[in-house]
């Protein structure tokens, strides 16, 4: 297999890099925020599908 040099490598690294970094960090922040808040609410109050109000 021959190695093929790519054009626009800097732009590709920036574009894909920023996208994956943002999505990754945001996902981690979601999980962390969820964990931190979950400890403060009793299990009985954690019903997500709840339209009783």
């Amino acid at each position: 297999m021959t190695t093929i040099a790519m054009t626009h490598v800097g732009y590709l690294i920036a574009g894909w890099g920023i996208t994956f970094t943002v999505l990754g960090l945001y996902s981690i922040s979601l999980v962390r925020r969820g964990r931190a808040l979950s400890t403060q609410v009793p299990a009985g109050q954690q019903r997500w599908i709840d339209t009783d109000e």
């Binding site: 969820g34 964990r35 979950s38 400890t39 009793p42 299990a43 954690q46």
Partner: peptide
């Protein structure tokens, strides 16, 4: 604390 009563994640 009460891990038995609290689900400490928003995951499922």
């Amino acid at each position: 604390m009460s891990e038995s009563t609290n689900v400490a994640t928003t995951g499922s």
